[in-house]
Amino acid sequence: MSIDIHEYLAEFDDIPGTRVYTAKRARQGYWMNQFAMSLMKAENRERWKADERAYIDEWPMSEAQKQAILDRDYNRCLDLGGNIYFLAKVFSTDGLSFLQAVGTMTGMTPEDYQAMMIAGGRSPQGVRSIREKR
């Protein structure tokens, strides 16, 4: 096999509304993701719920990353290197399902997102490639 890694990675930027969790993102979001992962322990969830700011300040994250988490702004979290399976620990702790949390990233109201999903989901038509407009 000889896939060119640079071409391989470059194509990921051509997908509309999607952040692929590459090395670049994994490195940027390392501590944000490790923070999120810590919420798998019940005792950490208690501490987090009791004082979110105090708990998050224990982690070596940028202020922007902390604020994005505190705001539950998941698109911003993704932009700053978060990964959805790590971030899931945050919204699960909030009692949100994947369906509820994922909808918040689409710019749609929860009702509209749910309705779209019940109607069969988002069509791939037009959101496959920015460059090729298909």
Partner: peptide
């Protein structure tokens, strides 16, 4: 690491 994984 990325290259090696693509290289199987």
């Amino acid at each position: 690491a990325q290259s090696l994984i693509l290289d199987e």
